[in-house]
Design a protein around this nucleic acid. Structure first.
Lengths: 342, 342
DNA sequence: GTGACTATTTAAACCGGTTTAAACGCTCAG
DNA sequence: CTGAGCGTTTAAACCGGTTTAAATAGTCAC
């Protein structure tokens, strides 16, 4: 009952031309009489013909798809505010072009390289997004070896053959710290993400640098892992310090919200006894109590820009320059307040 | 420099046989002498040959990929705890089979049907997951019309030609309500998800039914939308009631955590003045203050089961039965407490 | 020695497009 | 009238697999 979809041969027959002419007409190649092109397109239209992706893939050796490998523990990924919006931004570019997004989730313990290798060797994708960029990221060499085009999300520290699409985390962090300084805080601590990640160290460094500019030193920098559990741990350690900080800057919202919980559980009032700031402006940030002061980036726009750039690279039509996105900006809510004199 | 990958012809030449034989050997088809098979596989191995997905796709008319269309506002999707873990579970089934997952994110305003249509017509996938099942879901007819195999996540109310993989939400909800009843609560309200969704009404109905069994009626049922913002709104309305509830059961954690914030902002103590329970056991549930009593399902296992079932359906090897997953179970934390006599 | 039968193997068609080289039809200069 | 030149169209090869029908080789009975 399922009627087979028409093939290029059907269209050719209907228009009274050869397969080749249909292909030319479809792809707008010059050399065909306009009248013929019109006739072919009309025939294609009447038959409702759309060229088969599979056949096209085989003959032009392209997948018409881009790939995203997410290396993250599913449990942790669950509450990551970045990827869903990023992916939606990517889709907004891919859909009109008839491209698809192939997603792979790799559990950190597993072989991440195998994921990329599989994508490349199976010819599933024409290029990939390199997210969660790390210092000396081995994936950069891997991908150039595989010959798979890529775009890095943020700029790697070392040399990279790939264009970078960047959303500078530093201005946001600077703004948070300056905000706390203006509120009178002097004893500020930081809960950082894993130093392996470029965006984690970018935030930490901006934190330290901004304090330094004000002639201050961090009370402490707690290394953590971007998870809520890690945020709790780090917060407990900070609160146990002989001279505890009056403000804590977290490298993301998840840790911040968890830290908020930890502080409240310890009997502290936020922001009365402790100011707290996050990073990401995830959905819940606005709605926890007190509302979380944080930094809002635009992952959707990030996805759009990354997909556009990757496509330029793949098409090879123009030379591809790095893209710099407008930086994240401070969102002040009620988890930060003027330091009470005591 | 990039050496072309070997083709089946290279392997055939090396093994001194025809292309056809290589194909037979690779696919374990009978009719070849064992010695020949060994020789061919050895040759393939030495050349590092892996059959081209594209060529295979074209000749066998399969995509070797499954599709997932997520219809959700990216901003809201961001903090959905279900999909990332679900996808990871799916991947765990696909990866060993060399299949890929094609993801599409559709913004609710857009044409959702177009997303499925595109996936089907482009031949991108061999089957799709039908998530966020709705009552009288139009996608069921759409997909049978498109001839695209599918698996529904949870069981549609009407007739469906597709196998269902189900995680019954009711036992979890029942457990929550019984837990609150045991704690002495009698005035319990519910914040529900959109009634269009099967899983939302399943939770609401279980809520009402369990109260009814105890001879009680809900204080109120607030319709909401699973978002944090919606949770806040609903909670404010509930707290403004002349006789406000002593406990609120939310249809998911996001609304519950937001509701927790709203209650605290209103000056209520949780669980002293108000007990709160969620649903999902998202990452933050454990770490907010007070820790959220909730219901934990296993989306990873859900993904595994759904992918396995969909593959069975596509392979057509065995007749595919519905799958029932172990139900979600209650996780008691400190956001629920015995009702204070007053 | 021949025919029948079975076990292996292969050549060639096929999937549905793209692309190249050649053929065709026409006009116009010589 | 011939042939060069141009615009248009097509036949056929190709992408890299799968699959079918037929060819080949080997075994055995008669």
């Amino acid at each position: 009952m399922v009627k087979d979809r028409p093939t290029i041969a059907d269209v050719a027959a209907r228009a009274g031309v050869s397969k080749g002419s249909v292909s030319f007409a479809l792809n707008g190649r010059p050399g065909l009489a306009q009248a013929t092109v019109d006739r072919i397109l009309a025939a294609a239209d009447e038959l409702g013909w759309r060229p088969s992706n599979r056949a096209r893939s085989l003959s032009v050796s392209k997948a018409f798809a881009l790939g995203l490998v997410i290396t993250r523990d599913p449990a942790v990924l669950s509450s990551d505010p970045f990827f869903p919006a990023f992916i939606a931004g990517v889709e907004s570019v891919l859909a009109p072009r008839g491209q698809a997004l192939v997603l792979q989730v790799v559990t950190p313990g597993e072989d991440e390289a195998a994921g990329y290798r599989r994508l490349a060797q199976d010819g599933r994708v024409d290029g990939v997004f390199l997210s969660d960029l790390r210092h000396d990221d081995p994936r950069i060499d891997l991908l150039s070896e595989l010959g798979l085009p890529a775009v890095t999300l943020n700029r790697p520290v070392g040399p990279s053959p790939f264009p970078a699409v960047c959303l500078d985390d530093r201005p946001g962090t600077v703004a948070v710290v300056e905000h706390l300084l203006e509120l009178g805080h002097r004893r500020i601590a930081h809960v950082a993400g894993p130093p392996a990640f470029v965006h984690a160290t970018a935030r930490s460094e901006a934190f330290v640098a901004t304090l330094a500019e004000a002639g201050l030193e961090p009370v402490a920098i707690e290394g953590s892992d971007f998870t809520a559990a890690g945020g709790i741990e780090a917060t407990r350690r900070l609160l146990a310090l002989p001279q505890r900080p009056t403000a804590i800057v977290y490298a993301n919202d998840r840790m911040a919200i968890a830290g908020l919980g930890a502080a409240q559980q310890a009997g502290l009032s936020v922001p009365g006894d402790l100011s707290i700031a996050g990073f990401d402006d995830s959905e819940l940030a606005e709605f926890v109590h007190p509302g979380l002061t944080t930094v809002r980036a635009d992952p959707y726009a990030f996805g759009e820009a990354a997909a556009t750039t990757l496509n330029h690279l793949i098409d090879g039509t123009r030379d591809v320059a790095d893209v710099e996105l407008p930086p994240a900006r401070l969102i002040v809510r009620s988890s930060t307040a003027r330091l009470e004199e005591s």
